[in-house]
C-alpha cells in the first residue's frame, strides 16, 4: 500500500521547501501552505506529519555524527511512519516522511533530488539558504517522487 509522503528541505534556520506527494494516485496535493488537502482528516494528518518530521530534526543532528555517508537512512520511527534523511555537503537536510519504503529506493530518490538541488543552487538568482520558490524545481521533485516512490 502506498501512502502520501511528505518531503521537506530544511536549511540552517527554516524549512526551504515542502511538498506533500500522493504517490498512490500519481497526482500531487498542493503543499499545505498553498491551501491544504480536502477534508478535516487530511488536515489533521498533515499537521501530525509536520510534527513528526520536525521533531526528528534533533535525531538527524545526532545521527549525522555516526556515519560518513550523506544518506542517514531512517532516523526516526513513529507508529508506522518513518523519517529518512539525506544530508548535503552544505548541511542542508532533505527529509522524507513515508510509510516504510525500501532504503535503496529512497536513496535513489534523494540522489536525484540532490542533483536538482545542486542545479538550483547554481542559479545566480537563487540565494543560498533561502526558501525555494522555483516552480521548475517543484515539478521536478514531484516527478522524481512519483517515479521512485510509487
Amino acid at each position: 500500500m502506498s501512502s502520501p509522503v511528505l518531503f521537506v528541505i530544511v536549511g540552517r534556520n527554516e524549512p526551504l521547501f515542502e511538498a506533500e506527494i500522493d504517490t498512490a494516485h500519481s497526482s500531487a496535493i498542493d503543499s499545505p501552505g498553498g491551501g491544504g488537502g480536502g477534508g478535516q482528516q487530511s488536515e489533521l494528518s498533515t499537521r501530525q506529519n509536520y510534527f513528526v518530521l520536525h521533531s526528528a530534526l534533533d535525531l538527524v543532528e545526532k545521527s549525522a555524527w555516526t556515519t560518513n555517508s550523506m544518506y542517514l537512512r531512517v532516523v526516526d520511527k513513529v507508529n508506522q511512519q518513518q523519517v529518512s534523511t539525506f544530508l548535503t555537503a552544505a548541511n542542508v537536510k532533505f527529509m522524507l516522511l513515508h510509510g516504510g519504503k525500501g532504503e535503496d529506493v529512497i536513496k535513489n530518490f534523494f540522489n536525484e533530488v540532490y542533483g536538482y538541488y545542486v542545479k538550483l543552487s547554481m542559479n545566480p538568482f537563487y540565494k543560498y539558504d533561502t526558501p525555494i520558490t522555483s516552480k521548475a524545481f517543484d515539478a521536478r521533485v514531484r516527478a522524481a517522487a512519483r517515479a521512485y516512490l510509487s
Binding site: N123, T133, S134
Partner: peptide
Amino acid sequence: TFVELPAAGDDDYQ
C-alpha cells in the same frame, strides 16, 4: 546555463 528567471508575481523577491 543554470539560470532560471524568478517567476512573475514573485513579490517577495529579495
